[in-house]
Amino acid sequence: MAENAAKRLKTDNGGVAIGTHNGHFHADEALAVYMLRQHVPTYAGAQLVRTRDPKLLDECHTVVDVGGEYEPARNRYDHHQRTFGTTFPERATKLSSAGLVYMHFGRGIIGRRLGQPEDSEQVGMVWRKIYESFIEALDAHDNGISAYDPAGIAAAGLQKKFSDGGFTLGAMVGRLNPNWNDPIPADPAAAQAAEDGRFELASQRIGEEFDRDLDYFTKAWLPAREVVAEAFGARQEYDGEGRIVVLKRQSAPWKDHLYNLEDQQPEAGKVLYVLYPEKPTPDAKWRIQCVPQTKDSFQSRKPLPEAWRGFRDAELDGISGVSGSVFVHAAGFIGGNKTFEGALAMAKKALV
């Protein structure tokens, strides 16, 4: 296998080569390689060399997830050495090769996508958000860090009620490794080529998920910031205490931005309900959604009244005293009305 890697280096014709380890592959180096090759101009068309041979790795322009070195000046991005403890700014999770590459190259990736300088506020906002929503889970998985403190869970006597199938980003990549009893070509070069082919598939697969996140946060999430900020600034038009926010034009991703705006203006109090049209047309029905206690929580700060829950249409009109009612979910976290005026009336009644 080392011979095969050496031949590939010799036929590189002076181009850039990225080195990573061969053998069982993981999500972190699969994504690290993808980000470099697909999103950093220096590495466009870069050759991949999968080996643990130090001499071959020394010949590579960049090495990720192997080699025992973290030296950005020399393009070395390993995290396995005993002395390594680097984290993303303002986060506690130790980085893997994915986090290292993203920390150093992510601003450039986002800046090019947005057409803005790397040090702009919007680039920094998306850079941090993508790390927290996507990359950090890979770092934790590769470093064996649980999302919850195992000792705390044991002390509380908590147990999983069912299996979630373990289908994480890391598991998705892991499933692309060969099975233990799959046949292996007898020729070492052919065996390495087959393994490399699987890695390329894994790198492309997780890269597609990264690209979806990149597109979402640059094209949808970031533009929503202005929409939510405008609505947040006008919230006292509907309630003197600012507990109702209205997204006038259409629904937009609002939770992250709302929590951030509240943190920036704690004196303004907490928002309880967000109103928005189902679609951007004059005849659209309106939704009233309760703000969760936290972004991923199923618990609302103030659920819609218990007496309304699970009812619809005319029956709900009679119970709520608001005409045009469409529904209130049985869990009380969302409801609907045929008009904005009706949804606002529901929100005001629910405040009491």
Rank of each mutant, 00 (worst) to 15 (best):
E200S: 03
I184Y: 08
Q204V: 09
F199W: 07
V173W: 01
F210A: 02
G152F: 01
A191I: 00
F134Q: 05
Q204P: 05
K160S: 15
L176V: 04
I184Q: 15
N143G: 07
F162T: 15
D149R: 01
P178G: 13
F199Y: 11
P183G: 05
S163Y: 00
E208R: 08
S120W: 00
R128D: 08
A154R: 13
G166A: 04
G152T: 09
F210I: 00
P185F: 14
A171S: 14
F162P: 11
V173F: 01
L176M: 14
I145K: 00
A194V: 04
I135P: 04
A189M: 05
V126W: 01
F217D: 12
D164W: 05
E208C: 06
G144Q: 05
D142C: 05
A147C: 12
G170Q: 07
N143P: 09
F167A: 11
G165R: 00
E200T: 03
G124D: 06
G152E: 11
D119E: 14
R128Y: 00
D211K: 02
D215S: 12
A147D: 15
W180C: 10
Q122S: 15
A190L: 07
V173L: 00
S163G: 08
D142R: 02
E121R: 13
E209H: 14
S163C: 03
G157E: 08
G197H: 06
D142Y: 00
G144H: 05
D139P: 07
A140C: 01
H141W: 10
V126A: 07
S203Q: 04
A189P: 10
Q159A: 14
D187Y: 02
W180D: 12
M125A: 14
R205K: 13
